[in-house]
Amino acid sequence: MPSRRRTLLKVIILGDSGVGKTSLMNQYVNKKFSNQYKATIGADFLTKEVQFEDRLFTLQIWDTAGQERFQSLGVAFYRGADCCVLVYDVNSMKSFDNLNNWREEFLIQASPSDPENFPFVVLGNKVDVDGGNSRVVSEKKARAWCASKGNIPYFETSAKEGINVEEAFQCIAKNALKSGEEEEIYLPDTIDVGTSSQPRSTGCEC
């Protein structure tokens, strides 16, 4: 297959509302940060070109709504993901506890070919808050969880201060690239195109 296939890497960012998914993406792609909270609705992506081992790739980063009521259409966009980023807020135990749900939900919905080895990356965000004094999830605890789920790479980040954001996404890109997720190879029943390409749709004529 030509190289075009593997130059697009699809990444999904998941996590509770307010943990900083949108902020991380904006910091990485646009080098911008805002203190204001603006909830995400539905799913939304930004792209960024990354250089890796002398090759250029396009990272397609999907940011999702953490609030369930803003995810009305479902998660069809999980399909074909090469890496899934799980984000929590180190100052919120609940957001950490929910990582497991996000991970499991992703595995069920995206049904990757090799769930055991599907690449995840975990980010503990907002490490800057209050100089780390309001932190409730220790790095040790987070790392232990990551280890228990098949050695998920872990980063402590701050979208606000730009701490570890670049490093994290480097790792995300690397893992996305390594992920064995090949596109399903489609072979038509017959190479000869004839009537089969007639649209069967019988809707209106638009």
Binding site: K32, K38, A39, T40, I41, G42, D44, A65, F70, Q71, S72, L73, G74
Partner: peptide, 19 residues
């Protein structure tokens, strides 16, 4: 309709993100 709502609401999210 309820399933489709985020397609509409998304525009507001885009507006809020416009620098």
């Amino acid at each position: 309709r309820s399933e489709l709502r985020d397609l509409v609401g998304k525009n507001l999210h885009v507006l809020s993100q416009i620098e």
